[in-house]
Amino acid sequence: MPKISAPTVVQHRAAQRAAILRAAEALLIEGGVAGVTPRAVGERAGLARSSFYEYFPSKDDLLTAIAIEAFDQWAAEIDEALEEVEPGMPRLKAYIDTTMRMTADGKHELASVLQQADLEPSSFDDIMALHDKLMSPVKAVLAQLGIAELTAYAALVQGLLNAGMQLVAHGVLPATASQQVYDLLTSGLPIPAQPWL
């Protein structure tokens, strides 16, 4: 029986799988999708290349697992941030604030890199289903506000959030981007009064 580095085989396998995931995440951030190969991941994780295939049949499976874990962590943090916030506009503001802060903390970096992956259709569908799940807090807030056509408006809100996240990624302060997104959603463009000519 192979030597294990944990009290049980189950714990050993969980630790090795986690090591592969962390190694692949680091490689993704450093060199993009192209840098994630079974050999590179195995070396970074301190495991034999063959260990990669014991846990992930293909690179697509590994990238999908990374995306699922990232989406789950993102969703859990959003849920925790909104848990004590009263419904309606305060929750919308808290959702935007949390999204911009998490982006500034680098928590969206993996998702940005994973968008470059040319995944198999089934893997892509799995990730898109998770992305749709992340829209549920936006839809819940919009429903609380009495907005009809939730799917369409949630997509529009998400588009504006993505633009705010891009601003943060390019150096805009999270609080500034958050306020701009919130103001645009709630008040529209800040067009100055036009003087009569």
Rank of each mutant, 00 (worst) to 15 (best):
M1S: 04
M1Y: 02
K3N: 11
I4Y: 12
I4K: 15
A15Y: 00
R17D: 09
I20T: 01
E25I: 09
E25T: 10
G31R: 04
G32Q: 05
A34Q: 10
V36H: 01
T37W: 00
T37E: 00
G42D: 01
E43Y: 10
R44A: 12
A48R: 12
Y53H: 11
F56G: 02
S58Q: 08
S58W: 03
L62D: 13
L62S: 07
T64R: 07
A67D: 14
I68S: 09
A70F: 01
F71S: 14
Q73W: 07
A76E: 09
I78A: 06
E80Q: 14
E84K: 05
P87W: 04
L92C: 08
K93M: 06
I96D: 08
T98V: 02
T98W: 00
T99S: 09
M100A: 05
G106W: 09
L114K: 00
E120Q: 12
P121M: 00
D126S: 08
A129E: 03
L134R: 11
K139W: 07
Q144E: 15
L145I: 00
G146V: 11
E149K: 15
A152W: 13
Q158N: 15
N162C: 08
G164C: 02
G164Q: 04
G164V: 03
M165S: 13
H170Y: 08
H170F: 05
Q180I: 14
Y182E: 15
T186E: 01
T186M: 03
S187D: 12
S187E: 13
G188E: 06
L189Y: 10
L189N: 04
P190Y: 10
I191Y: 13
A193V: 13
Q194F: 12
